[in-house]
Write a protein that binds this DNA or RNA. Sequence first.
DNA 1: GAGTGGACTTGATCGAGGTCAAGGTGGGGC
DNA 2: GCCCCACCTTGACCTCGATCAAGTCCACTC
Lengths: 213, 213
Amino acid sequence: MTFQPTLNRPIAGTPGIPMYLVGAAQDARSIYHDGSEIYGEGEPAGSLYMVEFGCVRIGRFTREGRRQVCGFSYAGDIFGWESESEHRFFAEAVGYSGIRVLRPSRDAEACAKLFPLVIQNLTRFQEHLLVLGKTIVDERLAAFLCDLADRQGGVSQVELPMTRSDIADYLGVSFETVSRILRRFRDQGFVHVPDIHSIEILDRPGLEAVCRR
Amino acid sequence: MTFQPTLNRPIAGTPGIPMYLVGAAQDARSIYHDGSEIYGEGEPAGSLYMVEFGCVRIGRFTREGRRQVCGFSYAGDIFGWESESEHRFFAEAVGYSGIRVLRPSRDAEACAKLFPLVIQNLTRFQEHLLVLGKTIVDERLAAFLCDLADRQGGVSQVELPMTRSDIADYLGVSFETVSRILRRFRDQGFVHVPDIHSIEILDRPGLEAVCRR
DNA sequence: GAGTGGACTTGATCGAGGTCAAGGTGGGGC
DNA sequence: GCCCCACCTTGACCTCGATCAAGTCCACTC
């Protein structure tokens, strides 16, 4: 069964709401500041959310207080899919972000429209699984950077809205290690780091050689 | 948006095909022996597959020949979702397995029926992500065993159709480590290992205490 | 029965990366 | 301007788990 995702996803600017969701009942756009919660673990689920601008991290806290980030959503992405009646993850804004709440109807027509989006989401999680399966942490970070570049349209100048800690919790490593490997990538000429929240990829083939191992 | 999965998934026996897929065009059940390929990476995608009995591993090989398993499907599970026109993963039988090929129509009605199944799949991947995010490997294996027990109906006697290597590639560790931790769990009284392909969980709360960290 | 091959276990070694600790940097508030 | 705090970097140390290497245990064949 093949589904072609149809939604374009610019990283910057305000993407339009996909045409097939325009008819859905929707709340106004909400603005969230860095770190503020969009929904929390255990809260009732029921809506979908679309990032208009900014970035969102989705994750969970373990009993011991360790945070695990299972995904980032960027402008154009839709998140909030749940199979239970309450959220099993939290969603928080990363930086200043605009989120639109969608309440698509639950009829067959709407499901068909949403189908490619869920499949795309599924694919993304599968890819992330493969990244986390890698034992060498360099490979994980390289894969993260390549993915980020791709999702921002294949540009070499990549925005990093999240902190080193966010990246660390996403890749299952310590934030010190993220910092060290980034440093190594710089020394190896793979990337240039003009400031803390942006990365210029100088040697994409080199990075891919690292993550394709 | 909330979707309740409706499919029951017994681990043993031959589950019926969900009623809403009965109308779909379908091939006869195929029998696969241990290790044989159901589909390969790069092959054209287009069907869904349902495990009738046995087990299936889904994964990918890295360029360096390292295998990464991103999921196991058991009796009742449906796999084969792809967003591209060709498979990005391989699927292989784990032990003697029966697989039914489904070719559900692609109309809105079918999408609506399949929706809860994809969401359930999505949820499973998210949970697996959290497991792989754990730095201590004991926690990963404990989580794997608890999940396995749950998917087999919450019984304490768990079937392990896959090899230690399969588990290792699923958890992102070496197979020696799987063996060693299993040994440790035995010594700690968490499990009893009557034979290589089954595990009896003696102390479920204990195991959960390990994986909930 | 003996021989064979694949999966598993166990031991020994070593390095990647976690943890702890000590600066460095930069933005916001006063 | 100054302080403060959050985030980041870098260093030192040590543990966990990968890797290499035997050795064991079956299931299967002849």
